[in-house]
Computed example of a mutant assay.
Amino acid sequence: MRFETGVDIDAAAERVWRVMTDVTRWPEFTPTMTAIEPLGDGPLGIGGRFRIKQPGLPPMVWQVTEFTDGASFTWQATGGGVTTVGTHVLTPRENGVSVRLGIDQSGPLSPLVSLLAGGRTRRFVRTEAESLKRRCESGAGV
């Protein structure tokens, strides 16, 4: 299963990047995250690991697999026969940025997971994009 959504944000790219990569604060502004706990020291970057708790889902450990400062990061989690990859891409535009968020699930049980939880996954990704937009445009947070 692959799902991607995008949102245009009327805020400086530096601000959007700061909010998007300050992952431990996501539960402050998006209802799809209950808690995000770093499993190491330092800022978000390659190899960084985070335990994420989301409503109605078991906690999962996500590890950053790709990181381009100021532009994008990708992380993945594996569990229950499914590997989930989350992408976060920031593209500057004339009056702000465009952000694309994506989820890709693969593995032997991914068709079943998609059937059972695909709707919730799509809602969560859309909600996260809309929450990021509101947070960045409001001036709250970092």
Rank of each mutant, 00 (worst) to 15 (best):
E14L: 05
N95Q: 13
T68D: 10
V61P: 03
P111N: 01
A71S: 08
V61A: 05
W62R: 11
W62S: 13
P92V: 00
Q105E: 03
G107S: 05
G141S: 13
L132G: 01
M33K: 04
T127F: 04
E94A: 07
E14T: 05
G48N: 04
L112D: 02
P92Y: 00
A11K: 02
V64N: 01
R122P: 09
P38Y: 05
V89M: 13
E128F: 11
L109K: 02
L44F: 05
G56N: 02
L115F: 07
R123L: 09
V16C: 04
D8I: 11
G47F: 11
V142A: 15
L90T: 00
E37N: 12
G102I: 12
L101Y: 05
A140I: 04
P27F: 06
F67M: 14
P59Q: 00
G42E: 02
K53N: 11
R134Y: 06
G81K: 01
I46W: 15
S72M: 00
K133P: 08
A77R: 04
G139E: 09
A11H: 01
R123P: 02
A129C: 14
P58R: 09
P38F: 12
D69A: 14
K53Y: 09
E128H: 02
R2N: 15
S131N: 04
G79T: 01
F3R: 08
P27D: 06
W75C: 13
L132S: 02
F50Y: 14
V7R: 14
R123T: 10
T34E: 14
P38T: 12
V16M: 03
P111V: 00
S106F: 06
T24G: 11
E128P: 05
R120K: 08
V23C: 12
L39N: 05
S114R: 06
W75V: 12
V64H: 03
P58Q: 05
A117I: 10
R120T: 10
T127G: 08
G56F: 01
L44W: 06
P31M: 09
